[in-house]
């Protein structure tokens, strides 16, 4: 089941550097969760192949429960694939998160017992940076994410969107070369999501990092990424890899362009049937 790389009929030519080297790759990966109690084993993912090109912005969309988050965890080294191999910068990924990979989770992962500033400094302190370097990087990241006025506040005093910025800043200060985002804006309202999307694009351009974004929002995937991987219902595989063809300099205003509408429409036509399969599957599971 090879994924076909197809360009949108009327989309502009791709602006992504297709000759850039492969940065991270997943080959023949499957993930099967063993049986627990009365539950039979669950084949969550794959077999699946994916090459992430250095510096690209890749989004994964798919029906709920299709294994999107499992893919991210496997890629991050947070969980081991049942079969297949994962490599990052040419090194096999196994057992632990490689240096240079940062993850932002869907759930609020800010530490409620630390101030915003200390939250952002957490990873740097673990990595043993000296105090002046920590101060420099944290101050910059806190400013970059618009958190300067709240540096000494505790996460509980902030809104959900602000807390997610804290988590992004905490990942950012470690200067990851591969950033994995698992529905980071899932809990936010639509306007906040668009603005956070702009900031994510700005961050991606400034850092030059490779980004993999998991999302359930088709418009978010279409707006932010260079390529969108549309996944099937469980066990998740790529049905199609869609090139968006956006220029590197872009922001949320592209949602008003015609090609944006066609792109989301195309994604939905790919996923409609799969989503129906997934929700029917889930209803069948509930007794």
């Amino acid at each position: 089941m090879a994924a076909s790389v197809e360009t949108m009929p009327d989309a502009p030519k791709t602006m992504r550097d297709i000759h850039a080297p492969v940065h991270a790759s997943v080959a023949g990966v499957t993930r099967i969760f063993p049986a627990v109690g009365e539950q039979p084993p669950v084949h969550a993912l794959g077999p699946l192949d994916l090459d992430l090109v250095k510096g690209e912005f890749f989004a994964v969309v798919g029906p709920s429960g299709c294994g999107k988050s499992t893919l991210l965890e496997v890629l991050a080294g947070l969980s081991a694939p049942t079969e297949g191999s994962v490599t990052f910068e040419g090194q096999p990924v196994s057992g632990q998160v490689p240096d240079g990979v940062g993850v932002v989770f869907q759930e609020d992962a800010s530490f409620p017992w630390l101030t915003v500033w200390d939250n952002v400094a957490f990873g740097l302190r673990r990595a043993g940076f000296d105090a002046s370097e920590i101060t420099r990087r944290v101050d910059y990241a806190v400013g970059f994410m618009g958190l300067a006025d709240f540096a000494q506040a505790y996460p509980a005093q902030l809104s959900g969107g602000m807390r997610q910025r804290v988590c992004i800043a905490r990942t950012l200060v470690l200067q990851p070369r591969l950033i994995l985002l698992d529905e980071p804006f899932g809990a936010l309202d639509q306007q906040t999501r668009l603005l956070m999307g702009d900031e994510l694009l700005r961050l991606w351009r400034e850092t030059g990092a490779t980004v993999l974004l998991i999302t359930h929002a088709l418009d978010e995937a279409a707006m932010l990424s260079d390529r969108v991987g549309a996944m099937s219902a469980r066990p998740g595989r790529f049905i199609e890899l869609v090139e968006t063809g956006w220029p590197r300099e872009r922001d949320s205003r592209i949602v008003s362009e015609d090609s944006f509408g066609r792109l989301t429409g195309h994604l939905w036509s790919l996923l409609r049937e799969e989503s129906m399969k997934a929700s029917g599957h889930q209803m069948g599971r509930q007794k």
């Binding site: 049986a35 109690g37 009365e38 039979p40 084993p41």
Partner: peptide
């Protein structure tokens, strides 16, 4: 595979 699944609850108890 289903046989394994059927065995499970009794085994767990």
């Amino acid at each position: 595979m289903s046989a394994v699944a059927l065995d499970k609850p009794a085994n767990a108890t």
